[in-house]
Amino acid sequence: MNRLEELYHEAKADEWFKRFAVFCRIALAASFIPAGIVKIMGERFTALPSSDPLGHYFDALYLTGPYYTFIGIVQILTALLLLIPRTALLGALMYFPIILNICVLTYATHFTGTRIVTMMVLANLFLLVWDYDRLKPILPFKQAKIDPPVLKRPLGIRLRIIFFGSSILVLALIIIGTFYL
């Protein structure tokens, strides 16, 4: 077992990381529920004008009718799956391609909300890594069957500081990077 897996199991046992995972699930679900409801109700998603590239895209998407409603239903379903602990992994797996598509779209159209969407992608990636132990059997890596390790050198509070410090650094890089794009 390598050091990375030891750190993973240490984080999984830490209450702060557990709370952060719950926060990410709630925040991501909260972002999809209003957007899904708007689509299901058959209303326009945004007030952006058609002259804006993203506004033009949303106008075209709105005109698809049943497909627009279908997207709303999938967003609500994904949000609900994220909120239920037993189905949170399925919700995170469904959320990833949707939010990645939205992220690429916002970058391509130079949308001002790109930073927030990028943070949503990162939160979703955190949730997928959080469930690494459940995803591990389907990953294409050579794996030995072993029990979770007894930590030889636990980092304790330093792990939190490293993780959250790195997260702040990544967010700062996103803000600076999107400012210059």
Rank of each mutant, 00 (worst) to 15 (best):
Y57F: 15
H56P: 02
T46C: 04
P49V: 05
V22M: 03
R44H: 09
I33S: 02
P34K: 05
I26N: 04
F23P: 07
A30P: 04
G65D: 14
I26Q: 05
I40S: 00
F20D: 08
A29W: 12
P49R: 03
C24D: 13
D52L: 00
P34F: 07
F32R: 04
R44K: 11
H56V: 00
H56Q: 14
D59E: 14
V38N: 14
A29L: 08
R25P: 11
L28I: 12
L54D: 06
L28M: 08
A47S: 14
A21Y: 08
S31C: 07
C24N: 13
E43G: 10
R44C: 00
G36H: 04
P34N: 09
A27M: 10
I40R: 01
G55A: 04
I40Q: 00
D59W: 04
K39D: 13
D59A: 07
S31E: 12
A60F: 02
P53H: 03
P53R: 01
K39E: 13
F32P: 07
R25N: 06
A35Q: 06
L48C: 00
G42S: 10
A21M: 10
H56S: 15
P34A: 09
V22T: 14
S50D: 11
G42E: 07
F32W: 14
I26K: 02
A27L: 05
F32A: 07
F20W: 12
F45E: 08
S51H: 01
G55C: 01
M41T: 14
G36A: 08
P49C: 01
L61K: 10
S50T: 12
I40W: 02
A29G: 15
F58P: 08
T64I: 03
S50L: 08
